[in-house]
Design a protein around this nucleic acid. Structure first.
Lengths: 344, 344
DNA sequence: GCGCTGAATTGGATCGTTCTAAATCCCGTG
DNA sequence: CACGGGATTTAGAACGATCCAATTCAGCGC
C-alpha cells in the first residue's frame, strides 16, 4: 500500500534474522540452514520483496548492464542486430542499456556520456557516420570494454587500443557476388553505390576489384559509381553507368537499398533486370526476397552478429587483459532472379 | 592507469574541499563560490571523473531509467517505435533499459523480473501474444508506472488498474479502408487474416463490420477468413475466399504482411490485384510502397507512437496519482495502386 | 573589539546491499 | 562437564553519492 520499497532489513525484521542472513539466502549460498532459508523465503514472498541490483552492484563494484549504441535503430539490419545482442545479454543475466544516435556524432557523444554514468560493464557501438576515434576515446575512457561494430571511426590507432572490432566480411562478400556474375559470362561489371570514404564501401570495392583482376579484367573508371546509400540517390545516378564506351552488363551494388534503386532506374530506361542486366545487392533485407525480380544478395544474419557481439563483450569483461580481437563475420551469397541475365 | 574508479572523495582530496562541496558543484548548485567551483571543475577534468548515477539514485531514492519491453524488435514497426521511445527518454535524461521477449509470455516474465531489479521509473510494455494480466501484475507490483502498448493482455481489469494504455485506432483504420473500397463500388468485401482472439484483430474486424453495415451490407460468414499474421499463411489460405457463393471482389487485410501474402496467393490464381481485385493492408511497412502493385494501407507512424508512449510514462512518473489514461492514436489511409480495381 | 548576518563550507548519517571477521550455537569427546 | 570444532549467524564497515544540520567565514555597524 505505502510506496516504500521493501528491503532486506524489512525481511530480516519480519522473520527475526539478520540482514546478512537474508542476503545469503537471496544469493543462494549453501551456508544458511534449511529451516532458516525456508523461513526467509516465505517472508520474501509475503512482503513482495524486489532485489535492488543497483545497491548490490555498488557494494560489489561490478556492473550488470551492457550499453548498446546503434546509429539507426529503424534500419531492420540494426534492429535485428539489437535483438540478437539483447537475447544473449539477457541470457547471461545482463540488462541492455539502449542508445540510438540517428547518425549524428554529436548526439553520439551525449548518449555515450549519459550511458557511461550508468557504469556499464561494456559498450557495443555501431558508430555514427563521421565518428571520430579521439572523441570516442575521451568519453569511453581507458578501461571499459568496447566493441566497435560494422564501421571504423576515423583516427583510431587500433594497434594501440584495446577496442575489439567486428565487421562483416565485406571484401569476400563483394568478391563472391563478382565471381558469380563472372561465372554467368559477364565481363563488363560495375561497382555501384556507396560513399567511397566509408570503410565498408572501401572493403566491398576492394573485393570487387580483386575478383575482377583475378580473372584478368581491369575495372574501368566509368564502372565505379558513387552514390548516397539510399534507394533514391541510386535511382537518380543510374545514367552515369552508361556514359563510358564499354557500358556494363551487370552491377555489384553497395547494398540492397542501392540495388533496388538501381533496378528502378534501369526499369525506367527500359532495361529488364534479370534478362538484359544482372544486379546483386548486400544485406538481404526482407524486401530483397519479394522485389521483382527477387534480388541476388549477400545474407549477413544480423541477429547472429548481435549474439556474437554480445558474447565477445562479455568475454572481454571477464578477461580484460587479452589483446584486442578483430572479428570478420562470414556472409552467404543468396542467388535469386536479379542475376539471371547471362552473356552467351 | 589503475582500474579504480575516480570518486567525489578523490576530487575532494585533490583540491582540498569536502565531498559535499564537490557534490554541489556537480549538480550545478548556485551555492559554491565561483573560485571554488572553478577549482573543483579543473580537478574533475584532470582526474577524468565519471559521475556514478547508480549511487546517486540510491541515495535520492529515485530512478533515471525506463524499461522498454517489446514482443518483437526485429519487426520494423516495433524497431521504429523503440527508436521513438529512446529519443524522447534520452532527451529527458533517462536511459532506456531494453528487453525483448520474442512473443513468449514466459520469457516476458523473466525479462520483466530482471528489469524490475534495476528499479526503472516506469515500464513501456508491448505484450507478447497470450500475455496474462494477472501474471504481469505479479512482477510489476502495484506502484510502478506502466504503459501497455498496442495489445491488451487477458484478465486485466482496466477499471481497477492504474496502467495506461496506448493503441492504434484499429477500428477507425479498418473502417477507413472499408469505406474506401465501398466508394470504389465494391459490395462483396472480405476481412482477411489475423487471429480473432487478438485484441487488435477484433478491433479491426469491428471497424470493418460497422462500415459495411453503415452501407446496409451484412458481411457474409465466408468473407471472414482467419490466418496467422504472416505472409506465408495468408498466401496459403487465399483459396478460402472463393468457396462461398458471393466471392468477394476486394479484401481488407489484417495487416501488410497478410496483404502481401494474399497478393501472392491471388497472383498464383491468375487474379491481377489492382485490376481484378482490390486489397488494403495495415501498418505501411516499407515494403508496402514498393510492392507490385504498391499497397494501399494505413500509416501508423510508429516512431511518433514511441515518442508519445515515452512522454506519457514520464508524465505518469511525475504525477502517479492521476487516473489511468487510454490513448488511441490516429491512423492515416495511404491510397496506392492495389486498391485501384473498381466495380462499375 | 564584539555581535550579527548571510554566504560558503563541511562532518556525519544515509540509501540497500555485501563483505569481513568475529560471535554464537550445538555436539560429541575425553 | 569443560572443550574443540564445524556449522550458523551476525554486527558493523563499506560502496559512492546526497541530505541535513551545524559550523566557519567575511563583512559590517556600532
Amino acid at each position: 500500500m505505502n510506496g516504500r520499497r521493501v528491503t532486506v532489513t524489512d525481511i530480516a525484521r519480519g522473520c527475526g534474522v539478520s540482514r546478512a542472513t537474508v542476503s545469503l539466502v537471496l544469493r543462494g549460498s549453501p551456508l544458511p540452514a534449511a529451516a532458516t532459508r525456508a523461513k526467509v523465503e516465505a517472508e520474501l514472498k509475503k512482503q513482495g520483496y524486489v532485489y535492488n541490483r543497483a545497491a548490490a552492484n555498488l557494494r560489489q563494484r561490478r556492473s550488470s548492464s551492457v550499453a548498446l549504441v546503434v546509429n539507426d535503430l529503424s534500419n531492420p539490419f540494426f534492429a535485428d542486430f539489437a535483438a540478437g545482442v539483447d537475447e544473449t545479454l539477457g541470457a547471461a543475466g545482463y540488462v541492455t542499456l539502449l542508445g540510438s544516435t540517428g547518425e549524428s556524432p554529436e548526439r553520439q557523444q551525449r548518449v555515450l556520456a549519459s550511458l557511461m554514468e550508468h557504469d556499464p560493464a561494456g559498450i557495443i557501438l555501431s558508430p555514427a557516420e563521421g565518428s571520430d576515434g579521439v572523441s570516442l576515446g575521451q568519453v569511453l575512457g581507458v578501461h571499459l570494454p568496447v566493441l566497435v561494430f560494422n564501421r571504423e571511426p576515423s583516427h583510431v590507432r587500433w594497434s594501440a587500443s584495446h577496442w575489439d572490432y567486428l565487421a562483416l566480411d565485406n571484401r569476400r562478400g563483394a568478391a563472391l557476388a563478382t565471381r558469380h556474375l563472372l561465372e554467368r559470362g559477364h565481363r563488363s561489371i560495375a561497382f555501384f553505390g556507396g560513399h567511397a570514404e566509408s570503410s565498408s564501401c572501401r572493403d566491398r570495392r576492394r573485393g570487387y576489384v580483386e575478383a575482377m583482376r583475378a580473372t584478368g579484367i581491369e575495372p574501368e573508371p566509368g564502372w565505379l559509381v558513387e552514390t548516397a546509400p539510399t534507394r533514391l540517390d541510386a535511382a537518380a545516378r543510374t545514367a552515369s553507368l552508361f556514359t563510358s564506351k564499354h557500358a556494363p552488363t551487370a552491377a555489384v551494388c553497395y547494398n540492397d537499398a542501392v540495388a533496388l534503386g538501381l533496378m528502378l532506374g534501369l526499369g525506367a530506361r527500359g532495361i529488364t533486370v534479370g534478362r538484359d542486366f544482372a544486379v546483386t545487392g548486400f544485406d538481404d533485407i526482407p524486401e530483397a526476397a519479394v522485389s521483382t525480380p527477387a534480388l541476388t544478395t549477400l545474407a549477413t544474419d544480423p541477429r547472429a552478429r548481435g549474439r556474437q557481439a554480445a558474447e565477445r563483450i562479455l568475454e572481454r569483461a571477464r578477461r580484460p587483459d587479452i589483446g584486442a580481437v578483430r572479428g570478420i563475420a562470414p556472409v552467404r551469397l543468396i542467388i535469386r532472379a536479379s542475376s539471371e541475365a547471362t552473356i552467351a
